[in-house]
Design a protein around this nucleic acid. Structure first.
Length: 570
DNA sequence: ATAGGCACTTAGGACTATCTTC
DNA sequence: GAAGATAGTCCTAAGTGCCTAT
């Protein structure tokens, strides 16, 4: 299977030489998407009240009401924007009579609905083993039927073969569109992409596709328009597929090419800090930040359409503070802004004097809400990068710096004398250094404190157990002198060692968890770290790769697991 | 240059399955 | 075998970057 993957890749790379025209496949066959289940009206005894009086809603209005009812426990149903957006869209689904009557959301009482859905989900949890098994089997059947496609003689797993169900939109952060109604997608909204000579997917009985297309320059199987942002949504293949794997591999190869010329590029931008042209200075300082801090490019966004977040090129004066001296360091730039997913980026960085002076200059005579880099955007920056290296864009720096950091950290932190759990702790620490660089944060798990406590209790118990075992060993030794019973000593010694190891494992686990409180390792592992570095590390230290990658991850990185030897260098 | 459309990668959190503990 | 903790999967939003038209 893996070998087959490699052969397919090699075959394709060979062809890449011949086709530079962006052909992605020659044959594509699939069964189309799985649609969201139709709305099931709630039982008659579950009532809705308006202004204290019971009211039966039309099915259309009722469905949207249930979306809100299901969210009642969430904080955002109390937010003004959410409520306003929801109410506006809900009213569009009402009959004229309902519309005339229901004019104030605060007079709506969804409590019975909410209670009903909670009971439902409780009931689902309480289902018997048999019932649960039945559901599992049905899911498996759907997966087998719709979850795979054939692309160029190869059966591939599809990532998201289910069409997104209707519901209320909840963007991240302070999103101006939160609460809007995400409409139900019907076959008539869907474009199907497959090859002409394949068995075309059939739309559900009595319906039609919007279009059947045969575009082999793209990788998607199904697409539809989404009504909140007006963007297009796609059904594509799983990361384990050839088409994704090859792209991933390419990404890391580009980053490795950057490694070869990064010194030259760094020298260049340092020179450019002195340029007499402001646009070049801005470009050079921005690139420095992208390189040093692994910031994202920062495309412009339409104001009012999304949450107010920025990346490097879209930084504003208000996101930066300058300190000639701070905490004993000179020329400190303080960053404080919301990045992708409204995750806060906060960092105080000492920079070179020249950078500092330049930033000062860029901020001169500007309002807080003005762009820091007013002569720069991602397109200008990327055009410049393209000239420095084929295929170079801003995001390549993130990949490069993440991967090189992992490699360096692994070298630095791995202690050859330590055992497997300690080595894995070192791996996680290396991974963590990258996650911190890339600002991959997570909300501390709700149960964090408690789970730390449980672990500590276990550690304490293990310590007691250890001192008991040691005491027993000692007395066994004393006994042995008298009765020449070496066997008993050996056994006790073994027991002590075993307990020591268990204790060590627990302590390592506690350290790892504590250090990981607000840091998410998954994103960098999945998207930024050349998997060959990790695979090589595992081979070198004889760590089973399963300790680093779970099943899904091993499938995604099959190409790397096959490819990398213990001496692989990024 | 600028804007908009499109296709694709990257992202955190919700949800679910599985393991552990009582 | 129930409950709670943890690991793994799913979901889909939110980015990047390229292309085309103006």
């Amino acid at each position: 299977m893996d070998l087959f993957f490699l052969i397919v890749c090699v075959e394709w790379i060979c062809q890449e030489e011949r086709y530079t025209d962006g052909v992605k496949w020659r044959f594509l066959e699939h069964k189309g998407p799985v649609f969201a289940p139709p709305y099931e009206p709630i039982p008659g005894n579950v009532r809705f009240y308006y202004d204290g009086k019971q009211m039966k809603l039309s099915p259309e209005a009722e469905e949207v009401a249930t979306f809100f009812a299901k969210m009642l426990d969430h904080e955002y149903t109390t937010k003004d924007i959410f409520r306003k957006n929801f109410f506006k869209d809900w009213r569009k689904e009402m009959t004229p009579e309902e519309k005339a009557k229901i004019t104030d959301l605060s007079k709506c009482n969804f409590t019975e609905m909410s209670v009903y859905f909670k009971a439902q989900s409780e009931a689902r949890k309480q289902m018997s083993k048999d019932e649960k098994l039945k559901i599992k089997e049905e899911n498996e059947r759907v997966l087998q039927e719709y979850g795979f496609c054939v692309m160029d003689n190869h059966k591939e797993r599809i990532a998201n073969f289910r069409i997104e169900p209707p519901g209320l939109f909840r963007g991240r952060g302070d999103h101006p569109k939160m609460g809007m109604l995400k409409r139900r997608i019907r076959p008539e909204d869907v474009i199907v992409n497959c090859s002409k000579d394949s068995k075309h997917p059939k739309p559900p009985p009595g319906t039609k596709w919007k279009e059947v297309r045969h575009d082999n320059k793209v990788t998607w199987l199904v697409s539809w328009n989404e009504n909140i942002q007006g963007s297009i949504k796609y059904i594509m293949l799983n990361p384990s597929s050839r088409i994704k794997g090859e792209k991933d591999w390419q990404k890391y190869e580009t980053a490795r090419r950057l490694k070869k010329c990064v010194d030259r590029i760094r020298n260049q931008y340092r020179e450019d800090w002195k340029s007499k042209e402001m646009r070049i200075r801005q470009r050079a300082v921005a690139l420095y930040f992208i390189d040093k801090l692994a910031l994202r490019a920062g495309n412009e966004k339409e104001e009012g359409e999304t949450a107010d977040t920025v990346g490097c090129c879209s930084l504003r004066v208000e996101h930066i503070n300058l300190y000639p001296e701070k905490d004993g360091q000179e020329f400190v730039v303080e960053f404080d802004f919301l990045g992708k997913d409204s995750i806060r980026y906060y960092n105080k960085v000492p920079v070179e004097k020249r950078v500092y002076k330049n930033v000062q200059l860029f901020m001169e005579n500007k309002q807080p809400e003005d762009d820091l880099f007013d002569r720069l955007n991602t397109s200008i920056l990327n055009k410049h990068l393209q000239e420095l290296m084929d295929g170079l864009t801003a995001k390549v720096f993130r990949t490069y710096n993440a991967s090189i950091t992992l490699q360096q950290q692994l070298k630095e932190l791995t202690n050859p004398d330590e055992n497997v759990p300690a080595k894995i702790l070192s791996y996680n620490r290396a991974n963590r250094a990258v996650a911190i660089l890339c600002n991959h944060q997570r909300a501390p798990p709700k149960t964090f404190e408690k789970s730390m406590q449980t672990l500590q209790t276990k550690i304490d118990a293990k310590k007691d157990q250890l001192s008991d075992a040691r005491r027993e060993l000692k007395s066994a030794k004393a006994d042995a002198k008298v009765r020449r019973d070496e066997k008993a000593v050996e056994a006790k010694k073994k027991a002590v060692e075993r307990i020591e190891e268990q204790l060590m494992k627990l302590e390592v686990q506690a350290t790892d968890r504590e250090e990981n409180k607000q840091i998410a390792l998954g994103t960098s592992k999945l998207n930024y770290l050349d998997p060959r570095i990790s695979v090589a590390w595992c081979k070198k230290w004889e760590i089973p790769v399963e300790k680093i990658y779970n099943k899904t991850q091993r499938e995604k990185f099959a190409w790397a697991i096959d490819m990398a030897d213990d001496d692989y260098e990024f």
